[in-house]
Amino acid sequence: MRGERNAFALLDESSKVALITQLLEQDPGLLRVAQVVQKSHSGPLPSPEDFADYERALVGSCERILKMAERQQEVAYDLN
């Protein structure tokens, strides 16, 4: 295959679109779409969205998380 030319690369743009459209019509499962989402958050508490998720999963968990953070902060102040 090394010496062979790529026939697709030789097509003009409209021919490429037509060929891809034809292939997808023959087999709609041919096209796979993937989406990757990356979030970043820094701080002593979860992001607001994560906080809401915790509360939905377990009512009262936000209050518990806040109390835990407050206790950790008190300990940090006591050590200084």
Rank of each mutant, 00 (worst) to 15 (best):
5 R>F: 11
21 T>C: 12
80 N>V: 00
59 V>M: 06
35 Q>T: 11
34 A>S: 15
9 A>Q: 12
36 V>Q: 14
36 V>W: 09
76 A>K: 08
54 Y>R: 03
67 K>T: 06
29 G>R: 10
4 E>A: 14
15 S>P: 00
8 F>V: 11
27 D>R: 11
12 D>S: 07
63 E>L: 00
38 Q>K: 15
14 S>R: 15
47 S>T: 06
66 L>Q: 01
41 H>Y: 14
32 R>N: 12
14 S>V: 05
28 P>F: 08
24 L>I: 08
76 A>E: 14
63 E>T: 00
32 R>L: 10
22 Q>D: 14
74 E>A: 11
20 I>L: 15
31 L>I: 08
1 M>C: 07
5 R>A: 13
30 L>S: 14
23 L>T: 03
74 E>F: 04
9 A>R: 14
33 V>D: 04
11 L>P: 02
51 F>L: 13
54 Y>G: 02
11 L>H: 09
56 R>E: 01
46 P>A: 02
75 V>I: 14
73 Q>K: 10
43 G>Q: 04
19 L>K: 12
38 Q>W: 13
7 A>T: 14
13 E>A: 03
47 S>F: 03
19 L>Y: 11
35 Q>L: 12
22 Q>S: 15
68 M>E: 08
72 Q>V: 09
74 E>S: 05
27 D>K: 13
11 L>M: 15
74 E>V: 01
80 N>C: 05
46 P>E: 02
69 A>V: 06
67 K>H: 10
56 R>L: 00
62 C>H: 05
25 E>C: 07
36 V>P: 01
14 S>Y: 07
58 L>Q: 07
54 Y>N: 02
31 L>F: 11
68 M>S: 12
64 R>K: 12
48 P>V: 09
2 R>H: 13
1 M>R: 09
15 S>W: 03
23 L>K: 12
8 F>R: 01
78 D>E: 07
76 A>T: 10
71 R>M: 08
40 S>Y: 15
43 G>H: 00
53 D>E: 05
12 D>T: 04
56 R>N: 01
36 V>Y: 12
1 M>V: 14
71 R>N: 07
14 S>A: 15
29 G>W: 05
61 S>L: 04
19 L>V: 10
